[in-house]
């Protein structure tokens, strides 16, 4: 069964890898190009990075993207986790209704969510800008947090928290010391999804922003109409940042585990 991978299978996988990664590598290479061309390489230079770092709108977009991603991640992780804990103890009907409504932004085309929020913000008279973009990001991030925390809560023994409170713990202590430690993996993966969803978002941000507040995606979209190699530098920066986050997410648990092992060994 396992040895059916012939030459064709290998070729297919190599072609897949090339298809997936060639554009990413291409844009990174051309960000160091010596000329404006997007098609011909003329020596190595860092001029597009210099241009990017001296470009106010680009630096602002980077700032807004990171600021909103961090804020949206923190808010949606806290709110999403608490909501999931609350829901896990609520009546089934309420839980089902909330889960169904939560699925709407996950299932809906992003453009529909975007225009809905655009009309909502203007209906209640909030000025479009940083605030609306943050609200929108929190709105579409929370469902993902709930979706990744919920399954962990389902496998949790509900009596543990009750037992802790019977033994004199306050509800807050029971929450923080009994429930949260047991669902930490779900919370962390929810936070990671929230961060990358927010960091990468284009469609919804595009519709709810205003007042000159742009994130990186919106900037790439509006600038890509003209040849501008600084976009390559910006894109490379985005790729590097997300790769760094992913590496950190993957390496931190490994280091922790190693430390834990070493600790265990010394105890033994």
């Amino acid at each position: 069964m396992k040895q059916k991978n012939g030459l064709w299978g290998k070729i297919l996988l190599v072609l897949t890898a090339i298809f997936f990664y060639a554009p990413i590598v291409y844009i990174m290479i051309f960000s160091f190009n010596g000329s404006r061309s997007l098609t011909k390489l003329n020596g190595f230079s860092l001029q597009w990075y210099e241009k990017m770092f001296s470009d106010r709108t680009m630096m602002q977009a980077i700032f807004y993207t990171i600021a909103i991603a961090l804020l949206a991640t923190v808010i949606s992780t806290v709110v999403g986790t608490l909501t999931a804990i609350g829901l896990s103890r609520s009546k089934k009907i309420l839980r089902n209704v909330v889960e169904q409504v939560n699925n709407l932004p996950v299932m809906n085309p992003e453009i529909v969510t975007g225009i809905g929020l655009l009309m909502f913000f203007s209906a209640i008279g909030i000025k479009k800008g940083f605030g609306t973009m943050l609200l929108a990001h929190v709105m579409f991030c929370i469902p993902y947090v709930i979706l990744s925390v919920m399954p962990k809560l389902r496998s949790l023994d509900p009596n543990l928290a009750d037992a802790a409170m019977d033994l004199g713990a306050t509800p807050l202590q029971a929450l923080w010391k009994i429930i949260v430690p047991q669902i930490t993996p779900g919370i962390l993966s929810g936070a990671l999804i929230a961060f990358t969803m927010s960091f990468d978002d284009f469609v919804i941000s595009y519709f709810v922003t205003g007042n000159g507040v742009n994130n990186i995606s919106i900037l790439v979209y509006t600038m890509s109409k003209r040849v501008n190699p600084s976009i390559n530098a910006l894109s490379t920066l985005v790729i590097a940042m997300i790769t760094l986050v992913l590496i950190m997410i993957n390496i931190i648990p490994m280091i922790q585990e190693k430390r834990k092992k070493r600790k265990d060994e010394t105890v033994l």
């Binding site: 554009p23 990413i24 291409y26 844009i27 960091f199 790439v220 979209y221 894109s235 985005v238 997300i242």
Partner: peptide
Amino acid sequence: INMLVRTYA
């Protein structure tokens, strides 16, 4: 990685 960036590539 950002879909827009990959499309732009």
